[in-house]
Amino acid sequence: MAAMTSADHPRPTHTGRPYEELVAEAVAAPTDGWDFSWFDGRATEQRPTWGYARLLGERLGRVHSALDLDTGGGEVLNLAPKLPPLMAATEGWPPNVAKATRLLGPRGVVVVASASDAPLPFADDAFDLVTARHPVKAPFPEIARVLRPGGTYFAQHVGPSSVFELVEHFVGPQPQEVRNGRDPQIERAEAEAAGLEIVDLRAERLRIEFYDIGAVVHFLRKVVWMVPGFTAEAYEPQLRALHERMEKEGPFVAHSTRHLIEARKPLT
Rank of each mutant, 00 (worst) to 15 (best):
S116W: 15
V23W: 03
P10A: 09
A194V: 10
P175Q: 13
Y19H: 14
D68W: 02
D35I: 04
V130I: 10
M246E: 08
F252W: 07
V146E: 01
W50S: 00
L220K: 09
E25W: 08
G92V: 09
F140Y: 15
P184K: 13
D200H: 12
A234S: 13
V111I: 12
S256H: 04
Q156M: 13
Q185P: 00
D124Q: 08
V223S: 12
H259S: 07
A126V: 02
A100G: 11
G151N: 04
G105M: 14
H169I: 09
H255P: 05
E20P: 07
G33M: 08
E25Y: 05
F39W: 06
V111Q: 01
E45F: 00
Y211C: 09
G159L: 08
F140C: 12
R188D: 06
L77W: 00
R182V: 00
G51P: 02
G172M: 10
H157C: 14
L201D: 02
F36M: 15
R11P: 10
A155R: 01
A80I: 11
A7D: 05
A24I: 03
P85S: 10
V199Q: 09
Y235S: 06
G105Q: 14
N78A: 14
G74D: 01
D32K: 14
P48R: 09
V224N: 12
L77N: 04
